[in-house]
Design a protein around this nucleic acid. Structure first.
Lengths: 311, 311
DNA sequence: AATTTGCATAGACAAAATCTATCATCTTGA
DNA sequence: TCAAGATGATAGATTTTGTCTATGCAAATT
């Protein structure tokens, strides 16, 4: 039994067809048939039932295929590891990123990063924090970029930057007369929030020490799906919202009039690269980290006069 | 790269000597040298530093060896799985068992079990509950026999039997005049306990609703290392102790005078076979379970008029 | 009945793994 | 210091394994 045998049975399992499976393995159909028959003889069990069309795995075959998948996956990890050890920056990097970071961070570094490492294929998915954690665990993602700390022993967090929360409000909000605000200055009944699932929503609730109950219900209940929408709600319907620093940087000169800072130590969210414990492409992560840290404003890299908001 | 290559590098890593490693792999030294050189060329990295004696892995080699171990281990699991699928009862079964069970349970089934399945090699270690859980997780054990429930999602528990707790006390204990006892009848200051680490100790403390504080300290502090010792302490120094049912079965006719039952529902401990989630030798476990259930008294198999004591 | 589809078989060939014999280098101790 | 021993590398022969092309056979389809 060798790894090739296992790849053959996985291909047949996938295609349920010897000819197509052979094509995927870049061998002829007789070769693949022979190899699988040899393996079945060596193991002493039948893996596929060829009497039915399309072929299906036997009951025993199902179990063997499941374990074969584990082995093939681990050999792939070995080749990734070796590529990593040789300092090669290539292959595939599957990245999960929370939406409230993605919109503003990706444009800052992605293009130059792709140009610098043309052999690296990057797959990005916008996901919630929980989805990222799940998919790191199931090996569907290599790394996540999200707000930390997560307090999960199986995950490794490498902080990237600390992003201020800022207040964006309409002119008629009382507090807008002050220069520096405290969380208590915000009227919870005028506060626009993101919809459930966004960790930014939870952080804003924590920051304002609200649990979102006992609030007066107005004639409009609306929970925004993006930061862009939050801002528009303030522009059109008045009220107040809390935006992350990178979103502010994109505002026009005129809109910045409606931004107020918190009083130091300013509340921030910690944005980190998160990987699973035994992750092998550590070098790629280091490079990615450097690239991002160069792309964001330098003052965001330190924690001076800042205070991390829990998720 | 194939599995054989990986086994070769693991052998060299183990022996730090090409000749000995070749012997372990049942090939000649030139074959092994050649294979490893081929692999190193294919991967493009040097795995062993042969300039030193004995040979040592390079830094990169250490990482490759670690991942190779994972792969080889998973292929071993595949062959175990296949053996299992073929209904063969052979190979190695590494079993962890808590001491308070081992002493009394093993003699009941082990000999006949070994005779029935001569191809099965059984390795038994007496370990604490925590050690068993750790070693199941690290794959150093295939299964554990211990008191449950453990409330651990990664582990699968298959209850074997429910073992009564019984009181063994010297004649001068007041409660010995009653026929059926309640936990409250036991004088905590006269109670002999096993040393820390035994789950039986914890269960006895739970049963008597003690946390072992606020007790008068006598001029003798002694925590026993085995049930046999507990009994002797009662015999010689008077007092009371709590023994599991199987230990009672071994007492002489005379000693049984000093045994009292609890009032129904009698407190019991649940003894189970515990395996790790993806364990493959499920059939062997089934057989073992049947064998044990035949060996213990039939009335221990049901939970009727019994109540499980938490650990 | 003829055709197509899908897997198995046979024989040839090429690649690989392994063997025996031998070499090169380094260490050790008389 | 130099021969002996230990250790790994190299060379060439041989066996084993993997793969190909060509073809066979059975079942499904037209």
């Amino acid at each position: 039994m060798n790894i090739q045998h296992l790849k053959y049975i996985l291909a047949v399992d996938t295609h349920r067809h010897f000819g197509k499976a052979a094509g995927e393995c870049f061998v002829t159909q007789p070769t693949l048939s022979m190899m699988i028959r040899n393996l079945e003889e060596e193991l002493g069990i039948r893996i596929f039932d060829r009497s039915r069309q399309p072929v299906i795995p036997t009951e025993a075959g199902e179990a063997v295929i499941a374990q074969a998948k584990v082995i093939v996956r681990e050999t792939e990890r070995l080749t990734e590891l070796i590529s990593e050890l040789k300092g090669e920056i290539k292959g595939e990097l599957r990245m999960g990123i929370i939406p409230t970071v993605a919109t503003y961070l990706l444009p800052l570094f992605l293009n130059s990063f792709l140009k610098k490492y043309p052999l690296l294929k990057i797959k990005i998915s916008e996901l919630t924090t929980q989805q990222i954690i799940d998919q790191l665990r199931s090996h569907h993602l290599d790394l996540g970029i999200l707000a930390t700390p997560l307090n999960n022993e199986l995950l490794k967090e490498q902080p990237l930057y600390y992003e201020q929360f800022l207040v964006y409000a309409s002119r008629d909000e009382k507090m807008m007369r002050k220069k520096y605000l405290l969380p208590g200055d915000i009227d919870p009944n005028h506060l626009w929030l993101l919809e459930e699932g966004h960790c930014l929503r939870t952080q804003v609730l924590n920051l304002c020490e609200l649990r979102r109950k006992g609030l007066k219900s107005s004639n409009l209940e609306y929970e925004a799906g993006s930061i862009e929408t939050l801002k528009k709600m303030v522009d059109i319907n008045h009220g107040v919202t809390i935006l992350p620093e990178l979103a502010i940087n994109e505002l026009s000169e005129k809109d910045r009039e409606f931004v107020r800072h918190f009083k130091p130590p300013v509340p921030v969210r910690e944005i980190s690269i998160v990987t699973y414990r035994h992750f092998v492409k550590q070098r790629i992560v280091t490079i990615l980290k450097e690239e991002i840290c160069q792309a964001v404003p330098a003052e965001m890299l330190s924690l001076k006069r800042k205070k991390i908001t829990e998720i």
